[in-house]
Design a protein around this nucleic acid. Sequence first.
DNA 1: CAATAAAATTGTTAATAACCAATTTTATTG
DNA 2: CAATAAAATTGGTTATTAACAATTTTATTG
Lengths: 234, 234
Amino acid sequence: MLKYQDVALRIKHMIYQQELPKGTQLANIEELINQYQVSRSTIIKALDRLERHGVIYQVQGSGIFVRQRKKSGYLNFMESHGFTVDLQDLPGSSTVFNVDIVKPDAQVQENLQCDADEEVYFIKRLRFVDGKVYGLEQSYYRKKLVPYLNKEIAENSIFSYIRDICNINIGFSDKYIQVTKLDAEMASYIGLPEGDPALFVEEIFYTTSGEPFDFSRVVYHCENTKFCVQGHAK
Amino acid sequence: MLKYQDVALRIKHMIYQQELPKGTQLANIEELINQYQVSRSTIIKALDRLERHGVIYQVQGSGIFVRQRKKSGYLNFMESHGFTVDLQDLPGSSTVFNVDIVKPDAQVQENLQCDADEEVYFIKRLRFVDGKVYGLEQSYYRKKLVPYLNKEIAENSIFSYIRDICNINIGFSDKYIQVTKLDAEMASYIGLPEGDPALFVEEIFYTTSGEPFDFSRVVYHCENTKFCVQGHAK
DNA sequence: CAATAAAATTGTTAATAACCAATTTTATTG
DNA sequence: CAATAAAATTGGTTATTAACAATTTTATTG
């Protein structure tokens, strides 16, 4: 593990374990250099990451402060991939309907930047969190990049499988958000009346080398799912 | 303007003016150092910002590449503040209903971290983009930080007024997203049937020194507004 | 004592250097 | 010619130094 990642983790854990309230001032940079025995640039890089992840904020001439944690009940939209979100201690499970190898339609081709004859896995699953329906996910994975998938993997975390077993590092993502009304099929899966509102998110995930490996359409249960996005201007 | 900001802007403009397609490889870091006559650390910082804003991606051992631009018709959720979004060339206008000085209720107090007796501006306005209803915004600004507001300012960009006239620098924000059904009042403003789905976003904006200065509730017209979020793991 | 100016504190930017790590290219080998 | 190994290329990390900028504190002044 890289030094700045390690330092960032340790500072973050310190804040959360001690439950430091928002606005609490941390040690200044010189002190942090001493505490963690790393260079100035390493501390600065660690703080930069913590700032971007909404853990702290820095004020020139003043100090480093703890930022407000997101309100409970909201999922961190930036950290979520399909279903593998920062559920922390919430118990989750999935009902898997399909794990098929198919040919991509036009929209999938475009989003995964692949040809019509390239094979892709199609997976459809319903996600439960804390016993409640959370959303319906329909995902496409390029077989070229994810050679094997099955029901058991899909019942657990596809993303940690892809990362740990396929050695694919997730680099970046595009997410498109809109509101829709549930059609008959989706309504039956989600367990809500047809025509009810739902959050509809299309996500494309890319490897660190810029290849799209996953395109997903997710319909979220509008009462059981709310999102938070913590941004930073810097 | 800072060097790294200038370099980042120039690279971004170069990409967009030349309409370089996604995947196009840029000059390597050594060449960029020569082109822009700045140090390695400045180039790296500029590239870091461009990467975070979804303009490029970097692949170790390989190069720097142009990232896919977001699909048209979607608003960049990270760049949006209330209504002052990256509308680029789209013509926008606002109908302002209220510019009042009021005492904050409990929820506003909590979100703006202020007392019950601190005065806040309450502004209610309907936003049009390209002639279509875009959303209804109800905002609270702390008078302590934004001493003066009026209808004319609210008809234009409150945020650029706050930045340029009040000299308040926006530091970071918390945004909470959920889906709701329009109640009678909101439906009449938005011009959709009561009970129709809508995207409901609560936003809190903080100055660079960590003080919340704006709390807003925004109801977006679900057909006219779609969002995009481009994320990066790094 | 309030207003102002100076000094100290603290984070930010910029440049330089050395080395590390992932990828791509080239050369070697069977 | 394919497989493998070595070399070159390219971005990433860490450290050091110096100067800069915003804020806070202290000292000065009227």
